[in-house]
């Protein structure tokens, strides 16, 4: 992946998109905004419409009902933008990964959007945890902004 150094490094406006998660992730995000963690330090600001957003915080496994709305939201964000997939749900569906009512996480959605809407997925940081701690969310956000580097190496497991 190319080095992320987006124009919004110093002023990332975030939009919070719950796609059917259980809320725990969402309140941890809110927690990151409040005095103890205070992400406004980094210039982050919660905005109310995807049009103003630079970073989309996506939580939840993307349920069937919310799928189309999530797609529309992602299409309504002006580029360049980044996505943080927060929580095990968003990363790979979590415990609902194979349930009939979800599509099982963000990668599946990207796959579908690439085919149907010719949508090039934006830089995406995956933050596992159920829910991830606010510190983890901030760490992930810092990576997306290019402030911090990843501490783990990417390795893909292949069956021999």
């Amino acid at each position: 992946m190319a080095r992320i150094n987006p124009p919004f490094k110093k002023s990332p406006w975030i939009f919070h998109l719950n796609t059917g998660g259980c809320n725990a992730c969402d309140i941890e995000i809110l927690d990151a905004l409040t005095p103890y963690h205070d992400v406004e330090r980094f210039g982050m600001k919660l905005v109310g419409t995807p049009r103003h957003a630079d970073v989309i915080l996506l939580t939840g496994p993307i349920t069937r009902e919310s799928k189309i709305k999530v797609i529309r939201t992602l299409l309504a964000v002006p580029r360049p933008f980044a996505v943080l997939a927060i929580g095990s749900c968003a990363v790979g569906g979590g415990i609902w990964f194979d349930s009939y009512a979800t599509i099982g996480g963000l990668p599946n959605l990207y796959e579908e959007m690439r085919h149907k809407y010719n949508f090039e997925p934006p830089p995406t940081i995956y933050i596992p945890g159920c829910p991830p701690r606010p510190e983890a969310i901030i760490f992930g956000a810092a990576q997306a902004l290019g402030i911090l580097k990843k501490k783990v190496k990417r390795e893909v497991y292949k069956e021999d």
Binding site: S11, T34, P35, D38, E40, R41, G43, P78
Partner: peptide
């Protein structure tokens, strides 16, 4: 931010915001 017991953004934040917005696409 101080009244709310937070650290708050840097002073030039509003300029940073505007500079960023100028570099984004408009829908």
């Amino acid at each position: 931010a101080k009244i709310q017991n937070r650290i708050g953004p840097p002073l030039i934040q509003t300029w940073l915001d505007i500079a960023k917005l100028l570099r984004k696409e408009s829908l």
